[in-house]
Structures are given as structure tokens and as C-alpha cells.
Amino acid sequence: MEIKTKHLEYVYQKNSPFEKRALYNINITIPENSYTAIIGHTGSGKSTLLQHFNGLLQPTSGEIQIGDLVIGSEKKKKGLKSIRKKVGIVFQFPEHQLFEETVEKDICFGPMNFGLSEEEAKIRAKKALKQVGLNEEFLQKSPFDLSGGQMRRIAIAGVLAMKPEVLVLDEPTAGLDPRGRTEIMDMFYSLYKQHGISIVLVTHSMEDASKYADHIIVMHKGTVYKYGTPREIFDSPEELIKLGLDVPESIRFQLKLEEKIGAQIGKQPSISINELTDNILSYLKRGDIQ
């Protein structure tokens, strides 16, 4: 399923003294089975944008097309529920949305809201639990007896069990320790690779954006600053630094080294540690000093 926006604009509390424009002139396409990372500062409009992807917010002008459904600024759109089934959102700190007595019930909540029978939902719950790396023993436990990291996984399983075609993730690893972070990010990546799901990842981690995504959207002050592959985005790291954003550590290091040497090493910024190693090696092996 493809998501496409046309001149999308969103204004909070329109026509009131508290009016505030959060998004303007957003024209993006999120292709089917793609992995898109959205980066930008807190307050750049990332969170507002992703709430449009399943109709939680409607544009105040312009439009967004989600699959076959076009949502514009008209009064309360019908058919949003079917969209929410296809586009799952994992919000920041999703463990805050858990509420059922057992893990199983909580995971079944979404699927059953979308019309699945209890039996079907339970089958999905088992599967989703396995996907997030927990075994069936957890099904009958209370989610509130679990550790923070486990609760996070349960909440994610609750969204996965809806079997969305597009999975929108708002900083899904915030507050997790390094191991938990890697495990969860790898899990999302395999969903994208093996199950054909589209992933939209909102993140502050340039490492994750460059490692996993095939497209990156840079948001700045409510609009799209740049759109492209990680290679295209990080090819001009100065631009990102100018916006006050981080760049991948390998690029940051390369810039420092180039400043010291007074010349470029390698043809382009290294977006991984392997590329950086190659660039440094070729610099060390090169006979002449420029």
C-alpha cells in the first residue's frame, strides 16, 4: 500500500487565537514495501505528520492518499477505521497504552476491534508474541508485572497482531538498553524484508536511519527539508549539521579527520564504519600527501 501527500498542511486550533501551523507544503510518497526514516528535531512536525498516515489527524488543507482512500480537509471523513487496520502506529513509549488483565487480552484488543473473532485473535496473539521475541508463557501474565522492556514488546505485539500493511514507528527504542534496541530494530527490519510490510521510522538516531532505511525524509520547521536515499541525504552532511542535526558517527569522524589533514579522504562521506575503514585504509596507503 502506498501513502502519498499533496500540499498537505496542518494547523492546530485553526481559527482561534491559539492557531499554530505545524505542517505545510508536504509532498511525499511512501512506496509499497519500503523502509522510510523521518528525521528532524523535536518540534519539526514529525509526530504531527505521522498521525496523518492513519487518519488520526486530517489535513487542514491539501490531501493525503492512503491506499485507495483520499483524505482532504472535508468534515469528518468516513472509512477511517479500515485505514487504521492497514496502517499500524507504534507511538512513543507504547507501554503506556496497555490496559488489559493479561498479555493475551491486550494483544487481542486491536484485532478484535477490527472484527476478528476471539479464536482468530488468540492465534494472532501467539504469533505476534513470538515475533517480538517472547514465549507463550507470557500470554496469561499481567502486563503490569513485566519489566519496562517486556511491556514495550507486548505493546508492539498488540500492533503487529492487527497485521498492518504499513507500520509507523515513533522512536520505538527510546529508553531501551543497547541490546533491547538492536533486537527490536532487527525485528522490524525482518518484517520489512520477509513480510513485505512498509516501515516508517521516526528517529533521532542517524545510525538507525542510515543502517535500515532506504529513504530518508528530513523534516525542518514543519516542512520537508530534504528527501532521498541515505546516500543522497548524507552526501552533504554540512547541511544537516547546519540544521543542528546529528550525522552518523562515521561521517562525523571522517569530517574531523579531513579537517586535520586538510583534504578529503575517499570520494564521499562514509555512512558505515566499514566504508570509513576503507576510506582510512586507502588514505594511509596512498603515497602522496595533498
Binding site: 558517527e249 562515521s250 569522524f253 564504519i273 566499514n274 570509513l276 575503514t277 582510512i280 585504509l281
Partner: peptide, 9 residues
């Protein structure tokens, strides 16, 4: 990161 890079080199 630095430790990773040293290792790689």
C-alpha cells in the same frame, strides 16, 4: 564508536 573503529582498523 571510537573503540569500534580502532577494532576495525
Amino acid at each position: 564508536f571510537t573503540t569500534k573503529l580502532v577494532k576495525s582498523l
